[in-house]
Design a protein around this nucleic acid. Structure first.
Lengths: 235, 235
DNA sequence: AGGAATTTGTGCGTATGTATC
DNA sequence: AGATACATACGCACAAATTCC
């Protein structure tokens, strides 16, 4: 086996493929290479790749036709959201959706990592749901030089769809870090100021068995870091 | 592992599958799900399931075709080998299980047929269920010369597994006789003395439309009759 | 129309690492 | 130590569905 202590290889493969599909690297209806070619190209075995493909099929992102091929099926309501597929229901699955809470252009926070040339950024706050249930809050920073203004209605569809079609940004790499530190210690300034539902959710999270988790992501677009995401919730 | 001092899981799986096949839950020639799916569906690993399937194949209940699938093969002589699956739900099917009510060593009843050299026998009384519902009572007599004592815990699930592994008895022939005579006429002395549930069940049986049925079996082990079974219930 | 080629589906053997009894 | 069980991973051979010529 691999035993890098990391996630199983077939999970890594699945997540990588989901990211690529969500980022629009495959056209809708596009046929993937034959499994054997794909596997050798990815440096894995057919069986392992097939486990990953089966996962994509279960998520509705892929149609597998015996004797024909594996075909990408874009699902607009899903595509962005699988960006952060770490957040899944126990036992897997759950249909991810997101409510955009706010979009503001403002100076980047001091404690953010470097993610673009500008001193300003767009702060996007979203409520993440699985099958309608709130499971996480996330704060996404997009570098200010990428676009002048973003309206909340621009993000009605998929974040990645917006990046790709409106900004011409294609995702080439994503780095994720997950911490199991208790949530309140991380809660960024201002985050808990959201009213009602959100504050209540944070409260519940901090008291839940096992607490919550925090995830940080940085996203590379064509080689330039331009996005920074922090996220808290159950994993 | 499983522990609980019970049988190995692959044996339990094998017996469960045999019961289901013998009970007609799978049509003759039916193809089982892929091993990987089946294993996850049964909450076990592929390796363990494959051990069980190999056992079915050895018993002739399954044909395993490389690259194609696992196909159920009904074998009349085997369903009688597994003896007591005449009792089926109307329309077929039903998952048979059994609760051992009592195991006692005592002198053979006068009205029993000849089924072994000893004057004593082990009387095993079981409550037979299909999909959890009580459908029959059975009284099994094993010749006393076969083994000194039997504990109720020895009879975990399959009587024949116990015979084979603990007593070294291999079934070579089973003779079944079924009678549709009304139940009360047959009811053996002492049987109705079982309290509560059992007596009540007998009562209901005798009043049910069509009455009940009675089945007698004698079993040969390596040429010597050593077991006698009488059974009452719906068929 | 029909056979060959391509591609996915499936069983099978093997191997490693972990855990439990 | 050994048996059992699980998860992961690799690779092969054959079956079956589809597509191509």
């Amino acid at each position: 086996m691999e035993s890098t202590g990391a996630l199983p290889k077939y999970i890594q493969l699945s997540e990588m493929l989901i990211r690529r599909i969500a980022a629009g690297q495959f056209a809708d209806g596009a046929r993937l290479p034959p499994e054997r070619d794909m596997a050798s190209g990815l440096g894995t075995s057919v069986g392992t790749l097939r486990k990953a493909l089966a996962d994509l099929e279960a998520k509705g992102l892929l149609e597998r036709i015996h004797g024909s091929g594996n075909y990408v099926r874009h699902r607009p309501e899903v595509s962005s959201l699988y960006a952060f597929f770490r957040i899944e229901k126990v036992g897997g699955g759950g249909l991810p959706t997101a409510d955009v809470l706010s979009v503001d252009r403002m100076t980047k926070p001091a404690d953010a990592p470097e993610f673009g040339p500008s001193a300003e950024g767009h702060r996007i706050r979203r409520l993440r749901r699985l099958d309608g249930e709130v499971v996480a809050l996330e704060e996404i920073w997009l570098d200010g030089d990428q676009v002048g203004t973003i309206g909340i209605n621009d993000l009605s569809e998929s974040l990645y769809h917006f990046y790709r079609t409106r900004l011409g940004l294609m995702i080439v790499r994503v780095e994720d870090r997950v911490s199991v530190a208790p949530v309140p210690a991380w809660t960024p300034a201002g985050f808990q100021l959201h009213a009602g539902q959100i504050a209540g959710y944070i409260e519940r999270l901090s008291q839940a068995p096992g607490g919550g988790a925090v995830e940080f992501s940085r996203t590379w677009f064509d080689g330039a870091k331009a996005e920074y995401v922090s996220r808290m919730g159950k994993i």
